[in-house]
């Protein structure tokens, strides 16, 4: 294989290399770059005019509603990441250490299913289940409890984020936990380490990369999602993605929507970079 690799670029090699390069450059890199450029355009008489002016940035970044949305979105995504990781961990731990290989394989297959069912339909389902006169509150009523308002609150949004990210986080955590060398756990136990202490001082540090990757995906998904905060959280207050949609759909203010989008991408880059650095940092 190596002998053929060292030659220059042949027609054969170029044929396989080009499709990805051309398509993803034209329709992935360029649109994102264009979005960045668009954030410096001007809007005159309801028409967009190409330009290079920081006016959109200055205007958006001086608005209180932008910063309210920013803090709210960031905090909600952070809370969702912590909650999802914590809820997922015992499940992944159980799947990795307490069940047979066959069960684990079936479990992962079942966890893949949600990726291919419409997220919108699942959110609509939750809307009906969580409603003030929905299934859960009817059940609470039979128990003689007062209805618990979940729809159009932060609770609703978090249920939506969990629906979105929990299956993926469980899969990633289970995969990294199952790859841990069992003899290390056995060694810790033989040396008299208690069960909980094994989890916190042996298992979690060994599975750190997988746990952090899961958390990062959860953060990215929750940070960018507009369906849960809108349909379950009632858009009170709006998140950044809702802001993008409102700004885009309500007319020609695409440059301002681009400002919001670019600040979201920058935030995600910083978060992902910080997380990857933390994941690969040597233990001291």
């Amino acid at each position: 294989m190596a002998s053929k690799t060292s030659k220059g670029l042949t027609w054969y090699a170029a044929t396989w290399r080009l499709p990805n390069l051309v398509w993803q450059f034209l329709f992935f890199v360029v649109p994102l770059a264009f979005l960045f450029y668009l954030s410096f355009w001007l809007v005159r008489n309801y028409r967009m005019v190409p330009g290079f002016d920081s006016v959109n940035w200055v205007k958006m970044l001086s608005k209180d509603y932008f910063w309210d949305a920013y803090y709210f979105t960031f905090c909600m995504a952070l809370v969702a990441t912590v909650i999802t990781s914590c809820i997922a961990f015992p499940c992944s731990y159980g799947l990795a250490f307490k069940t047979s290989n066959a069960t684990r394989r079936w479990a992962i297959f079942f966890l893949i299913i949600p990726f291919f069912t419409s997220y919108l339909v699942r959110i609509y389902s939750w809307q009906v289940i969580l409603a003030e006169n929905g299934v859960i509150n009817a059940a609470l009523g039979y128990l003689g409890l007062n209805p618990f308002i979940m729809l159009n609150t932060v609770v609703g949004t978090l249920v939506g984020y969990l629906t979105l990210a929990l299956p993926l986080v469980v899969i990633l955590q289970t995969l990294s936990l199952s790859n841990i060398d069992r003899s290390l756990i056995g060694a810790a136990e033989n040396l008299g380490c208690g069960r909980l202490r094994v989890v916190f001082t042996v298992i979690i540090p060994l599975a750190k990369i997988g746990l952090i990757v899961g958390a990062v995906f959860c953060f990215i998904l929750s940070f960018g999602d507009f369906v849960s905060p809108y349909y379950l959280g009632g858009s009170k207050p709006p998140t950044l993605s809702i802001l993008i949609i409102d700004t885009t759909k309500s007319g020609q203010q695409w440059p301002r929507a681009a400002v919001v989008a670019v600040s979201m991408i920058l935030t995600l880059l910083v978060v992902a970079f910080a997380a990857v650095t933390a994941a690969y940092r040597k233990r001291t």
Partner: peptide, 9 residues
């Protein structure tokens, strides 16, 4: 990349 951003881009 969040889908809303991909959509707008």
């Amino acid at each position: 990349i969040p889908l809303v951003i991909m959509g707008l881009a």
